[in-house]
Design a protein around this nucleic acid. Structure first.
Length: 643
RNA sequence: GCGCCUGUAGCUCAGCUGGAUAGAGCAACUGGCUUCGAACCAGUAGGCCGGGGGUUCGAAUCCCUCCGGGCGCACCA
């Protein structure tokens, strides 16, 4: 409701300003610092003051006199040096909120969001959790605003990391294919590979000659033949299954898994290579350190034309680098490659949703993916250099529009707090101990595994639930504890803005008090309980609550403020999307919960004697409940039945 | 050296892309459970928004500069 009023006001004021002054300005609506100033504030006079070279206050006064009446606004007044404060028609606002008036969703083309992208060679860790939760929440925000979204999780199943685990099994552990297959079918295969990967990595540092095994393995994988290639497939497929399972625990699902193996087999790169050469986006270096390589000139992606900065796309031995493959993949996402994958059903989620993976054999699955109009790549900020190169590639090919619509949805890494490192027995240098956070290495097998963290959170939540609800069955308690734990985790990962490094600390992550997911859940449960415990059937609000009733009840300033708070969700989603910041969404949900909690303490709904007021309070409670649940849905947090 | 990010309460962070008296949570202190469940609430205390210049009606926010911290800058992904 709030959002639709906002859009009415901005468009009417903008139209007036355009006609009256011949100036086109974006009209901004702010929330006054003090509620006594009114519900909305327009700083438009300040914006106009620059162009008109007149005092803001005079312009504001003039605007108020000349602006035609706006539906829903009862009063306008000049305040401060030139603010225009608006007071709303409370009863009309409430009536519209009751009717569920919303802004029509905008329809644009398909948006592709790529996230998670974990190397399929070891268990997921907390850094991957941030990526997936950020990506998944952004997807939910986009969908809540009416966009069509496709979620992709890219699988690099032919890379060095997978090869290293294969080297570990084959050369170090001397395992047969059958043995590896058996291990892959057993639980916690991702944990086993986590350790094996670390062991192989450290083996290389002492035995440089072993790097030859890696080269052989990579070669075999690329050729797609022999025992080593088969091992790679077993490992990668089994680990992908582990990752999907971990992500499903968090409510994160995907539409399609484009895999690097098909990018290779279906000659995506060859096609892109032709185009890059044809349009002179890359050139063959005739001399210098990159002699014999196809390179993208530095000037295309950096503010330098230094030859040393040129990026190699095709190595002197003719093989393509990661960036090259990524350019091909990015082109496919926009439907620019003139090629598509085949697809096969990878698996079906418990709710019936189907997940497809790319395939190189023609199948009858009639599914089409890719060819989006806008692409968000959720990748941590350490890869911004490579993302810049990919975008520069599109630009060099002449795809300027697509380059502009390729968005690196970057975020900072998840490091560990020194305290948590100590808990995990990670050796720290004296220098590290002084830092606020320490970056840990997956290659060394250090870090916090995603499933371990989730297990620990569930354990914690279980303790609380068990203590409060001895009467419930163990299964019900476990279910509630799981929902609370996941809510806590998702909120924790979301409450930091993208540019903030998370110094992961067990104590903080395991906290269920204050600005946390459980706080929001608790408020929602309370709203639900009031409605549940109200004896008779809930009244039919739409017929009982008339404009008269609203204008009587809304003379209470606090109640009016609660209505405003409980009708802002759509506006909040919109703003968070514009800012590209899921953290704003999380914060809004928290503030909404705070607002309801205040209402909860200020008004006794069930014991209210005045019948008319009670119906009104019930409706307000219901309004809070539905908005809180929707907000949690956007955050991907599921409700426990009790807590 | 070049590029990107960053410095706000004791700690962890917001601050809606220039607006009114800079906000939360944690920790600390004082209170509140026979109430729609205290995973909560009310209150107290805590800030030269890293320093200095500039832009203007107005700066935590934009520009310059200095200081401090992080991350990138492979024929690895």
């Amino acid at each position: 409701m709030y959002q639709s009023l906002e859009s009415t006001i901005t468009s009417e004021v903008a139209a007036h300003v355009h006609i009256r002054y011949g100036i086109t300005l974006p009209v901004v609506i702010e929330q006054p610092k003090q509620s006594s100033f009114g519900e909305m504030a327009l700083p438009i006079a300040f914006q106009l003051a620059k162009e008109l070279r007149r005092a803001p206050k005079a312009i504001a006064t003039e605007l108020i006199e000349e602006l035609p009446a706006i539906d829903g606004v009862s009063k306008m007044e000049v305040a401060g040096n030139g603010y225009i404060n608006l007071r709303l028609n409370r009863a009309a606002y409430a009536i519209n909120a009751l009717a569920g008036i919303t802004v029509a969703a905008q329809t644009s083309g398909k948006i592709i969001v790529e996230h998670t992208n974990i190397n399929p060679n070891k268990a997921a860790h907390i850094g991957h959790l941030r990526n997936a939760i950020l990506g998944d929440t952004f997807v939910r925000m986009l969908r809540a605003a009416g966009n069509q979204v496709e979620v992709q999780n890219y699988i690099d199943n032919t890379g060095v990391q997978v090869a290293d685990v294969v080297v570990g099994f084959h050369y170090l552990e001397k395992k047969s294919t059958a043995e590896v297959k058996a291990l892959a079918a057993a639980p916690r295969f991702d944990y086993l590979c986590w350790d094996l990967y670390a062991r192989t990595s450290s083996y290389y540092t002492d035995h440089k000659e072993a790097l030859d095994w890696r080269a052989q393995t990579l070669h075999a994988i690329e050729a797609g033949e022999g025992e080593l290639a088969e091992l790679a497939t077993i490992v990668a497929d089994a680990i992908v299954a582990c990752h999907l399972k971990t992500m499903l625990r968090l409510g994160v699902v995907y539409d399609v898994l484009p895999r690097e193996s098909e990018i290779l087999h279906l000659q995506f790169w060859a096609k892109a290579f032709e185009l890059l050469k044809e349009r002179k986006a890359i050139e063959l270096a005739a001399e210098g350190k990159n002699k014999g390589c196809w390179v993208m000139r530095a000037e295309a992606f950096a503010s330098s034309d230094d030859e040393d900065m040129d990026k190699v796309i095709v190595r002197s031995n003719g093989t393509v680098t990661y960036v090259g493959k990524d350019i091909a993949y990015q082109m496919w996402k926009f439907g620019l490659l003139g090629k598509d994958f085949f697809y096969r059903l990878w698996h079906t989620y418990p709710d019936g949703k189907q997940l497809f993976a790319s395939s190189d054999v023609p199948a009858d699955a009639n599914h089409k993916f890719g060819a989006g109009s806008k692409v968000f790549n959720v990748i941590d900020s350490r890869q911004s250099y490579l993302q810049d190169v990919v975008v520069a590639g599109l630009k060099a090919l002449g795809f300027n529009e697509q380059a502009a619509n390729s968005i690196h949805f970057s975020y900072e890494m998840v490091a560990l707090s020194p305290r948590t490192c100590v808990e995990l027995d990670i050796d720290l240098s004296d220098e590290d101990k002084k830092r606020p956070y320490v970056e840990v290495s997956g290659r060394k097998g250090l870090g916090v595994k995603a499933d371990d963290l989730i297990d620990k959170l569930i354990e914690n939540a279980s303790r609380e639930v068990d203590a409060r609800h001895a009467d419930k069955s163990e299964a019900d308690r476990k279910k509630a504890a799981t929902a609370i734990a996941i809510g806590a985790l998702r909120y924790f990962m979301l409450k930091y803005t993208r540019t903030s490094v998370i110094a992961f600390d067990f104590q903080e992550a395991l906290s269920f008090e204050g600005e946390t997911g459980p706080y929001v859940l608790y408020a929602t449960i309370r709203s639900r309980n009031i409605l549940k415990k109200y004896g008779p059937e809930l009244p039919d609000f739409k017929s009982v609550l008339t404009a008269d009733v609203f204008s009587r009840q809304l003379q209470d300033e606090d109640l009016w403020q609660y209505i405003l708070a409980a009708t802002r969700l759509d506006s909040a989603i919109d703003k968070a999307l514009t800012a590209g910041e899921p953290a704003h969404m999380a914060r809004f949900a928290f503030q909404l919960a705070q607002s309801f909690t205040n209402f909860y303490h200020g008004y006794q709904v069930l014991s209210e004697q005045d019948k008319e007021k009670q119906v009104f309070l019930l409706w307000l409670t219901e309004q809070f409940r539905s908005q809180l649940e929707r907000a949690l849905g956007v955050l991907g947090v599921e409700m426990p039945d009790f807590m």
